[in-house]
């Protein structure tokens, strides 16, 4: 199971990168994309939308299921990954890179300590598998 150490995770399987100039990138984990199967469509939030940690802000669809994606942190949507519209398979192929979903502008470090580190997230996955 690929769980990079350089980011944090929500128990609902989203990852959030370290902030850079107040911007956090969000995607779903390798475990999540594997459970979903082939992703066929992604519904992304609107740029400029204010979101609270825990809000359902995006939907990732595979053929037989659709999963809500929850904002791991509170902030404002700065950018979304438009490439996924034409190539949703990037979420399966490269969940931690080209398959990112959206970027949030966050204030300070609020809520980050609620998220899991790689080890803690690994045990969440092991429980669910």
């Amino acid at each position: 199971m690929n769980i990079p150490e350089d980011r944090n995770y929500a128990a609902t399987h989203e990852w959030a990168s370290e902030p850079q100039d107040g911007i956090v990138t969000v995607g779903i984990s390798d475990f999540a994309q594997d459970q979903l199967g082939d992703v066929v469509f992604v519904e992304l939030p609107e740029v400029g939308a204010a979101v609270d940690a825990g809000d359902a802000v995006a939907v990732v669809e595979s053929v037989k299921t659709a999963s809500d994606i929850y904002a791991p942190l509170t902030g404002t949507v700065e950018e979304v990954n438009d490439d996924l519209e034409a190539a949703p398979e990037r979420i399966n192929e490269d969940p931690y890179g080209a398959g990112w979903l959206f970027r949030l502008r966050v204030e300070g470090d609020d809520g980050r300590d609620e998220l899991l580190d790689a080890d803690a997230y690994r045990s969440v996955c092991e429980e669910e598998a």
Binding site: V40, K64, T65, A66, D68
Partner: peptide, 13 residues
């Protein structure tokens, strides 16, 4: 196709 929009998958959504 595109069944994930439908009630048997999305239920309340």
């Amino acid at each position: 196709t595109l069944q994930a929009r439908e009630q048997h998958i999305r239920r309340a959504k």
